[in-house]
Lab assay of single mutants.
Amino acid sequence: MAEQVALSRTQVCGILREELFQGDAFHQSDTHIFIIMGASGDLAKKKIYPTIWWLFRDGLLPENTFIVGYARSRLTVADIRKQSEPFFKATPEEKLKLEDFFARNSYVAGQYDDAASYQRLNSHMNALHLGSQANRLFYLALPPTVYEAVTKNIHESCMSQIGWNRIIVEKPFGRDLQSSDRLSNHISSLFREDQIYRIDHYLGKEMVQNLMVLRFANRIFGPIWNRDNIACVILTFKEPFGTEGRGGYFDEFGIIRDVMQNHLLQMLCLVAMEKPASTNSDDVRDEKVKVLKCISEVQANNVVLGQYVGNPDGEGEATKGYLDDPTVPRGSTTATFAAVVLYVENERWDGVPFILRCGKALNERKAEVRLQFHDVAGDIFHQQCKRNELVIRVQPNEAVYTKMMTKKPGMFFNPEESELDLTYGNRYKNVKLPDAYERLILDVFCGSQMHFVRSDELREAWRIFTPLLHQIELEKPKPIPYIYGSRGPTEADELMKRVGFQYEGTYKWVNP
């Protein structure tokens, strides 16, 4: 592979701008107003304001973009700056750019259920340069409990009458099928589907988006991507930290609602779906819905739930269990780990287990898709061969690698495990991989909904998990304890083995 010439960040961002501006969906010269509902909250200060700053800094926003914060707290732009700027990672050389960014910011205080507050917000936006005809993007960085009041008031008082209007809704989209349907029906009564952007930030990850290209742009994968060759698929999300004093919020939802029903299920769809007619948003989402419709409700015998306990040999936070978090209700049975087996009941995947695993306070930070292939028929190497695996590593250190057998150097035919490896950090030294939120917010500006969740996708996802969630809430089974920093409950490994996964433990990928 030829040595790549190092590029400056300015040059890299210039390439990104060229890609972005050559499309006809990006209205570079139009006025846009980006409204952050819930501007005083954690999500706004840690993710949304920093993301908008990065896009502005790199010249990736339309030229005439204004940012308006809205929340109940009586704040000023200076207050917003004070709480969000520490997350910007701005350099001293960017000081003038930073001043320009905050000059485009404003803030309006108001209630979430008060019509007069929204009329005041609308008047404020109209007073901005060309504000009355601007395109408006409303980001709901809010708890779902206020979605209905907020969307109703936005629709009645704050819509642009000339430009387009788009609304970005953060997960969780309800707690179960019934609450999700209620919320979807409410929002759909106010906005068209092409105006609604239900954001799952995992769909903005580079390697998640790469799944489609790997599958449908490489001839070698087509013939082997089926039940005849693939023994099982494992989708993993692991965090090495616990709730760390923020367990009160987590306890309301648990690990299945927080990660599995959305992030992991979306990745499953991209692995299992048929080739779409095109890369058009609805063509892709149509195929994802077909996959979900082929999955039956989760069966309790295919589920393992766990909850982390303190590690007596650990240090600091590792010595504390979930129930030691003062914000967690006493005696909570909320799971911090889950392993679930699903089956896609169609011709391509009949009988292939899709194993979804996620948890907190585990032994490493990792998100990946792992396809394990069947054993080689007619073994001539005296059971020395391990199964081939194709691994798409989402985070950290984005990579695609194939675990395969090669001859060990020497005189004899002794096979050993090795890999074919594409590590993004080595291959793409001159490429700026956008943060997931950067990519998705740019998608909203461009009107691309491919990486957002459609209402029928959402409904099918909740259909699969709601009976299990209701059973857990009714019966309150005690989750299996696992030690902070471990791989999780051993019962999860036993479940995976029972459905056909072979864990060798003899080879570990190392970032080159």
Rank of each mutant, 00 (worst) to 15 (best):
H32M: 09
T243R: 03
G248F: 10
D114K: 12
F34P: 02
L60D: 04
L61N: 02
L20C: 04
V12G: 11
C13A: 06
D42N: 08
R219H: 06
G204P: 01
F26K: 11
E252C: 10
G245M: 10
H124Y: 10
Y49N: 03
D113Y: 14
M159A: 07
D42W: 01
K95N: 05
E93G: 12
Q83P: 05
P223Q: 08
D113C: 13
S188F: 09
V233F: 03
I80L: 09
D58C: 09
G69E: 02
M159H: 10
R227F: 05
K46W: 02
N218E: 00
I52R: 00
F101Q: 00
I36L: 07
L140K: 03
N218S: 04
L16Q: 09
F221K: 00
A149L: 12
K205I: 00
T151H: 09
G131E: 13
K82Y: 05
A109N: 15
F21D: 09
M125H: 03
A149R: 15
Q119F: 09
K152F: 10
K152T: 07
A141Y: 03
G222D: 09
Y139C: 08
G245H: 12
T145K: 05
F87W: 15
G242L: 02
E19C: 10
F173E: 00
L177F: 08
I230H: 00
F102R: 05
Y249R: 02
L61C: 09
V108L: 07
I234V: 13
R192F: 05
M125F: 10
L203E: 01
N153D: 09
H201W: 00
C158R: 04
R74K: 15
F88L: 08
N122Y: 09
F34D: 00
G131S: 15
R182P: 05
L75Y: 15
G248R: 07
W225V: 04
H201T: 03
N210Q: 03
I162W: 13
A6I: 07
L96D: 12
Q83L: 13
E244F: 11
T10R: 15
R192D: 15
L137R: 02
R257P: 06
Q83V: 11
E206M: 14
L43C: 00
R215G: 02
I52D: 01
L203H: 02
I33P: 01
Q209D: 09
L61Y: 02
I199F: 10
S123Y: 15
I33W: 06
F216K: 01
T145S: 09
H27S: 08
F237I: 15
H129L: 12
A115G: 15
Y118G: 05
R166M: 00
D194G: 08
G222M: 11
D58H: 14
C232K: 03
E244N: 07
T10V: 13
I36V: 09
F56G: 02
D194P: 05
E94T: 08
W53G: 03
F250D: 00
C158P: 00
N218V: 01
G38Y: 01
I167P: 02
Y249I: 02
E94W: 04
P86W: 15
N105K: 02
F253C: 09
M125E: 01
S73C: 06
D181W: 05
W53E: 05
W54D: 12
M125L: 09
E99F: 09
R166F: 01
R192Y: 09
I36Y: 01
Q22K: 06
W53A: 08
L128D: 06
L96W: 13
N64C: 09
I33F: 11
L190I: 13
S123K: 15
E148F: 13
I234G: 09
V169D: 00
F102S: 03
P92N: 15
S40G: 10
E239H: 02
Y70N: 12
T65I: 13
G59M: 09
F34R: 01
W164D: 04
S160T: 14
I48L: 07
T243G: 13
E93R: 09
G254V: 01
Q119N: 09
D42L: 00
S84T: 09
S123I: 11
I154F: 04
L60I: 10
G174N: 10
T236R: 03
Q161R: 13
K45S: 10
I35Y: 03
S157M: 08
R182C: 15
F66V: 08
L61P: 02
D30F: 08
N229L: 05
E170K: 01
R104E: 02
D228H: 09
E239P: 00
F216R: 01
P50K: 07
D228L: 09
A115W: 14
H27T: 06
Q209V: 05
F34E: 05
F221Q: 04
F221W: 15
P50D: 01
K97W: 06
E252S: 11
S184F: 12
N165K: 07
F250Y: 12
F216S: 00
K89N: 15
A217P: 03
G174K: 05
Q178E: 07
W225M: 07
G248Q: 09
V146T: 08
Q11V: 15
G69H: 09
N226A: 12
D181E: 08
T91G: 07
L43F: 01
V68Y: 07
Q195R: 03
V12Q: 14
F237Q: 06
E19R: 15
S73D: 01
R136I: 07
D30I: 09
A78R: 05
E193H: 06
A231F: 06
V169M: 11
A127E: 12
H186I: 08
G222T: 10
P240G: 12
I33N: 10
I52A: 14
K97Q: 13
C232W: 03
Q133P: 15
G110I: 00
A127D: 15
S8T: 15
T76H: 09
K97M: 09
S73W: 02
Y147V: 05
M207I: 09
G14H: 13
H32R: 15
I36F: 05
K82T: 13
H124K: 10
S73V: 03
V77F: 10
E206I: 15
G204I: 02
H201A: 00
N165I: 10
P143M: 04
F88T: 13
L96K: 07
Y49C: 02
E148W: 09
Y107L: 05
F101K: 01
P144T: 02
D58I: 06
E206H: 10
W53P: 07
Y139E: 07
Y197Q: 02
L128T: 11
Y70H: 10
K82G: 14
D113P: 09
L183M: 08
D58K: 11
Y249F: 14
F191I: 09
L142S: 03
S123D: 12
R57K: 06
D181Y: 13
K97A: 09
T51V: 11
D251W: 04
A231K: 15
T65Q: 03
W54E: 07
G59R: 03
A71N: 01
R166H: 10
V12S: 13
R198Q: 03
S84A: 11
L137Y: 07
W54P: 08
G247K: 09
I196W: 04
S8G: 11
N210H: 01
N229V: 09
I234S: 10
L137D: 00
K238P: 02
D251L: 02
S179D: 04
G204Q: 02
Q11S: 12
A103D: 14
I255K: 03
Q11F: 14
G69V: 01
A71P: 01
F253A: 12
R182I: 10
V77P: 11
R120G: 10
E148N: 07
I154C: 07
F216V: 01
G131I: 10
D30N: 14
N185Q: 15
N126L: 14
F138E: 00
S160G: 14
N210K: 03
H124P: 00
A149K: 12
F88Y: 07
K238E: 02
N135P: 08
L43A: 02
M1I: 10
A6E: 15
R74I: 15
H201L: 00
R74D: 15
A231Q: 14
D181L: 13
P50E: 02
Q119C: 12
N226C: 11
S106V: 09
A78W: 09
A116N: 07
A141H: 00
I224G: 08
T243H: 03
T31Y: 09
V68N: 01
Y249L: 01
I199E: 02
A134R: 14
R257M: 05
F216N: 02
F21Y: 15
Y202P: 01
R227D: 04
D58V: 14
R81H: 06
R246M: 03
R182L: 15
A149P: 09
T243D: 04
S184A: 12
F138P: 02
I154V: 15
L235C: 09
T65L: 05
T145L: 05
H186V: 07
R136L: 06
D251A: 13
Q119A: 09
L130V: 12
M125K: 01
